[in-house]
Amino acid sequence: MAGKRLAYPWSSWPPTTQQRFFKLVLSGTATAFFAVFVGVYLFTGTLDQQIKAEKAQYSRVVPIVQEINMLHARQGDLAHLSVEEATRRILDDHALTEHTISFHETRISETMLGEEMTMTGLTLVMVTDFLKAIRDRASLQTPEFALTRNPDDPRLADVHLVLVR
């Protein structure tokens, strides 16, 4: 029997010691799971409180930022001009007149008039600069906007938009 090897180290222990060992392992495992569960529960509770606090702060800040943006848009140097005049000035300032293929007045609703325009062969930087200028300098908005890829040069874009105040 000297060549027979035991499968587990506790196989040679007395039965009472084995029972005590397994009860200890079971209670240790249960304690570890309980500790992990409590830790995760406390962590998610703290995280939930932090998320609620961030949401509350965000809800206080959003109206202030919107008001600042609105006041900033009203301070534009072209806000006193008509939509057509302000747009033409911005087109001239950004050298986009040669890219404009259509520019005419359109009716948005019963009481609102706007300018509908189509530009072609623009880079993305040109489009964003133009949109920023019409927002900041002329206080204009674009209720309709379509950006498509230029069929002649896929690196460029064509833009169709309606401008209103």
Rank of each mutant, 00 (worst) to 15 (best):
L42E: 06
L124C: 13
A138D: 07
M70I: 10
A53M: 06
R20Q: 10
D158H: 03
L71E: 15
I90K: 00
M112A: 03
P151K: 01
T44H: 15
S59H: 11
R88V: 14
I108Q: 07
H104G: 02
A53T: 06
N150R: 05
V83F: 00
W13P: 13
N150E: 10
I64K: 11
T46R: 14
A35V: 08
L47D: 01
V40M: 15
D77N: 07
A138C: 08
G114C: 12
D92T: 14
L42G: 04
R149C: 08
H99D: 11
I68H: 13
G114V: 12
S109Y: 01
A30Q: 09
I68A: 15
T97K: 07
T17M: 12
A133K: 09
T148D: 12
V65G: 14
E144H: 07
D129Y: 03
Q66C: 09
L42I: 08
G3C: 15
T87C: 01
D92P: 02
I90R: 00
E98T: 12
A7W: 14
T31L: 09
A133G: 06
Q50V: 14
G121P: 11
A86R: 09
A2C: 10
L147K: 04
L6I: 01
E84F: 11
L147I: 03
R60Q: 08
N69W: 12
V25F: 03
S102D: 05
E54A: 08
D77E: 05
T100R: 04
M112K: 00
Q49L: 07
R155I: 15
L163E: 01
